[in-house]
Nucleic acid binder design. Structure first.
Length: 922
RNA sequence: GGGUUGUUAGCUCAGUUGGUUUAGAGCAUCACGUCGACAACGUGAGGGUCACUGGUUCGAGUCCAGUACAACCCA
């Protein structure tokens, strides 16, 4: 079989994803194995995956695939969120483009359009998830408006209402004038702006309506406001009772400019005398603080804005004018009429709607609320007790705690159509009946009418039974918070077999930006309804930023298209690139260079495959010629290494292949153990780095070179099969990160009945550190000798004569053939004294002499040696200083002192070696 | 204003209970290299005293305090 020059991902990826689906590897049903459950954070149904999702899904897939290969019944549930505001806004926009005004449609007509829209675009995210290689159970795909899910949301609302945890009332809420709906506190994003503070004078009157003598030369009292368009809603002026400037105004009145309404001067310590003029205009309808002040002082509430942000009839002037346009006009008029004093710049913060971007308006409105204090307690203790572990570390614990301890009631109603309609019905008198269905509500109404009739003897005919359902829908998060339960029908069918098996889920992987929107509320719902946490671990990924550190956003246009990236680099490379640059919990700077690194890694794997396939061909060729070379076999010692690695005879002579195989076998186990620890700590980026280096450096750069047969030479059967075995194990180790290429190579290495996707990891064996250290020494010697060759400007083809001066020649005899090949030595000899006229390289206590045709550059060598000598002497000095410190010797642990002594001996020996080498230079 | 986190090589980051050599990796840089796995590559090399100040300790990148700067969250 001919292998292409470079790895081509596209065909491979499609082939294997289809194969895995055909084999139903991703489908899970409860069985006797332990479950490993992950629910996907449902993306917006009509959205596309951005880089943040890509990171999230990749992390989840790695964890799920790892679990599936480690004896767990892995179940990853995909799905999407109806995203009420975002989707409705998109549908409204689409209708507008078709010339259709939402207001001319009935609810049913609108929903028909919305569902058409969902059908058309809802599949995009799913195809992207598939392209990325995510091993989700497609049979379990859930949408937050599926029938059972819809019913579950309704059921929960009714239940919470019956428990007294839900109430309806007029409160000050955040109003989005563009989407014309209420928002929760979490849906408001604050931005720093430089606003203006306008100073405006109000005329004063006494209780009899007579003008009061001018203050400070003016004709009244000056207030400072950022929002002059709200003055028509003023119902008081408030000053601090301790502010002597205004003490004489007790019981007096101010006149609102332009509309000339008389409003009282009130006194409250809330007002900061040092801010502005020390006098505050109070507009209870349009500011939360003013609202509270109004409640306290029983002030009138004048709402001067319509729901679309234009001025209302109550404003009396500029009715119908948009709020910011009205501000300009009012300022002009205030100036004309002499009420305007001055304006100044003022750094401030303004709330914007997370979805529509409109400036949010505080507004008094009748909405449904969920009492949060009662829900917060168990959710707080679940995390504080450590039942739910947050990764990384405790970084988010303080934030989480603070939010839950200070949480306010949650406004759950939205003035939209796309979502679960609130199951509350009103009779003609405005009485409310909450029930799961209209029939149930109707029964409640009848019951209550009967009671009333009996109690109050209502006139016959007054109690009409006509009911109207609340037009509003629920906040999207009021459905999303049930996600881990209801994907297994845990709410609609409590205690069913599936929810018992899969819930609580294993780990939730999500962005830290939705910790309050979603994570905290899922914990609330979970602890409330299942009486248990919804997940054992939470893994917060960082935010994906561009190279310059900016947030990725549509408006900046700096978010790349996922499918484009996959086309260009392949899914494996995208996964690699995003994972390698993503330390747990930290923001990651997305740079396409890391995807290139991933693609290059693919290629490296591919080329390694080509190399061993070439060996296979040679091996087979030899067999057909029946010139079977059976002179090689694994020594007992090497075999022992595979069985009981601990018992390597110290002086066992090893040939190059046995040495290489024993070394790599141990190195592999060492890394596997390391990776296992990293997985348990969710340090996936580091795990990938370790695997990457094991494959590229240890396997490709060292091991394959060491066992490589000579030019056009056949390879030993045993070496070949061990190499294939190593390669397969490496592919298995890498598979969760890069599933496609690893599966492909696994199958190309040899004929397979099974698939890597579900191949179970073998138990990790103990590592023989001595064997690993032997390999490290060999690497070090080879690198140092190559460096010396380079420094002497020897061409790769030029051979050298190598002389080794060591106290333990056996160590080098074991690796002699490898060494010879790797440094291109024609001979290797062992000596007991210095070799004149040779370049000398000192490693540990051993010396290596290089003799070549080319004359050694003694000056360079001398400089190098002197530099090394200086370094060693400095080091020795610091060690000696430490050892001469009596308090160190007295206080430090014995091992530490011993180590320092060894360091001293090593450094001294090394200095001696260098000095001898210097003396040897001519 | 309150809170959280961070500041280590040109860039992005590791450095897990303080002590295995006066700090590691990837990318970038430089030198050399192309007859057979790999130029999307190979072999080497250079580069930082760990933001700053002080403290604890026999010993601090690591612990504590303060300062500066940055990011994020909340009001």
């Amino acid at each position: 079989m001919e292998l292409s020059k470079n790895y081509i991902p596209s065909a491979t990826e499609e082939k294997w994803y289809k194969h895995w689906l055909d084999k139903k590897y991703f489908n899970s049903t409860p069985d006797e194995r332990p479950s490993y459950t992950v629910v996907i954070p449902p993306p917006n149904v009509t959205g596309v995956l951005h880089m943040g999702h890509t990171l999230n899904e990749t992390v989840q897939d790695i964890l799920v695939r790892k679990a599936r290969m480690s004896g767990f019944n892995a179940c990853w549930v995909p799905g999407s969120d109806h995203a009420s505001i975002a989707t409705e806004a998109k549908v409204v926009q689409m209708l507008k483009e078709q010339g259709i005004d939402k207001n001319t449609l009935t609810r049913e007509e609108f929903l028909k359009y919305a569902f058409q829209w969902k059908e058309k675009y809802g599949g995009i995210i799913y195809s992207q998830i598939a392209k990325l290689g995510c091993s989700v159970d497609w049979n379990r795909t859930t949408f937050t408006m599926d029938d059972h899910y819809y019913k579950a949301v309704i059921k929960v609302f009714v239940d919470l209402y019956n428990k007294g945890l839900v109430y309806r009332g007029a409160r000050m809420i955040n109003w989005d004038p563009a989407a014309k709906t209420a928002l929760s506190d979490e849906e408001v994003e604050f931005k720093d702006i430089v606003g203006k503070l306008y100073h405006i004078e109000y005329k004063l009157e006494d209780e009899n309506g007579n003008p009061i003598a001018p203050l400070h030369g003016g004709a009244g009292i000056t207030i400072a406001t950022q929002r002059p368009e709200t003055i028509m809603g003023d119902t008081a002026i408030c000053v601090n009772p301790n502010d002597e400037r205004y003490a004489h105004l007790k019981g007096k009145f101010a006149i609102v400019p332009l509309i000339y309404r008389r409003i009282p001067i009130i006194f409250d310590e809330y007002v900061d005398p040092t801010f502005g003029t020390g006098a505050l205009k109070v507009t209870p309808a349009h500011d939360i603080n003013d609202y509270n002040l109004g409640l306290k002082h029983h002030l009138e509430v004048v709402d001067t804005l319509n729901e679309d942000g234009t001025l209302s009839e109550a404003a009396q002037i500029y009715v119908g004018v948009e709020r910011f346009a009205a501000r300009k006009k009012i300022l002009v008029e205030l100036k004309e009429k002499g009420y305007f004093i001055k304006e100044e710049e003022y750094p401030s913060r303004l709330g914007y709607s997370q979805r529509s971007g409109a400036v949010v308006e505080p507004r008094i409105s009748t909405q449904w609320f969920l009492k949060m204090k009662e829900m917060a307690g168990p959710a707080l203790s679940a995390v504080v007790n450590g039942d739910i572990k947050i990764h990384p570390g405790e970084k988010f614990l303080a934030t989480y705690k603070y939010w839950l301890e200070n949480v306010k009631d949650w406004c759950i109603s939205r003035q939209l159509w796309w979502g679960q309609q609130i199951p509350a019905w009103y009779d003609e008198k405005g009485n409310v009946f909450v029930a799961e269905t209209e029939e149930a509500a109707s029964l409640k109404l009848q019951a209550s009418s009967l009671e009333q009739q009996n109690a109050e003897r209502l006139q016959p005919g007054a109690g009409s039974l006509k009911l109207t359902q609340d037009a509003d829908v629920f906040d999207t998060w009021f459905s999303a918070w049930l996600w881990p339960m209801e994907v297994f029908n845990g709410i609609s069918d409590p205690g069913n077999k599936e929810v018992d098996y899969y819930y609580p889920t294993s780990v939730l992987v999500t962005g830290q930006d939705i910790i309050f929107f979603w994570v905290a509320r899922m914990i609330m719902a979970g602890t409330h309804y299942e009486k248990v946490k919804p997940f054992n671990d939470v893994y917060f990924t960082g935010m994906v930023r561009d190279k310059q550190g900016r947030k990725m956003s549509k408006s900046l246009g700096n978010s790349p298209d996922l499918l484009d990236l996959i086309d260009k680099y392949g899914a494996d490379a995208v996964r690699f690139g995003i994972m390698i640059s993503s330390p747990a919990g930290n923001d990651l700077l997305f740079d396409e260079a890391s995807l290139e690194q991933g693609r290059n890694f693919n290629n490296k794997l591919w080329n390694a495959l080509k190399l061993v396939k070439m060996w296979e061909a040679r091996q087979m060729a030899e067999e057909t010629k029946e010139i079977v070379d059976d002179s090689f076999e694994l020594t007992d010692e090497t075999k022992q290494l595979f069985g009981e690695i601990d018992q390597l005879p110290h002086d066992a002579p090893l040939d190059h292949a046995n040495f290489s195989i024993a070394w790599f076998a141990n190195r592999l186990q060492q890394v596997r153990a390391e990776v296992e620890v990293l997985y348990s700590q969710f340090r996936l980026s580091e795990a990938l780095k370790v695997i990457y280096s094991l494959i590229w450096d240890d396997f490709c750069s060292w091991y394959l070179e060491w066992v490589k047969p000579g030019f056009e030479q056949p390879i030993e059967d045993e070496v070949y099969s061990k190499t294939i075995h190593f390669f397969e194990e490496l592919m298995q180790l890498l598979h969760p990160f890069m599933p496609f290429i690893t599966e492909e190579i696994y199958h190309l290495l040899s004929e397979k009945q099974d698939d890597l996707c579900i191949k179970q990891f073998a138990a990790i064996k103990a590592t023989n550190n001595e064997v690993v250290a032997g390999g490290e020494l060999l690497k070090q010697v080879i690198s140092a000798l190559r460096d010396a060759r380079n420094k002497s400007q020897l061409k790769p083809k030029e051979t050298i004569k190598l002389y080794i001066q060591s106290e333990n020649n056996q160590v080098y005899k074991n690796i002699e053939s490898i060494l010879q090949k790797q440094v291109n030595a024609e001979t290797i000899n062992y000596v007991n004294e210095t070799v004149p006229n040779a370049t000398v390289v000192a490693i540990e206590k051993d010396k290596f002499y290089i003799e070549s045709e080319r004359k050694a550059d003694t000056e360079t060598i001398r400089t190098e040696l002197l530099k090394d000598l200086e370094h060693q002497r400095g080091f020795l000095q610091s060690v000696i200083k430490k050892l001469n410190n009596e308090r160190f010797v007295a206080n430090a642990k014995v091992e530490v002192v011993e180590l320092e002594k060894k360091k001293q001996a090593d450094a001294e020996a090394r200095i001696k070696t260098i000095e001898e080498s210097l003396a040897n230079l001519v």
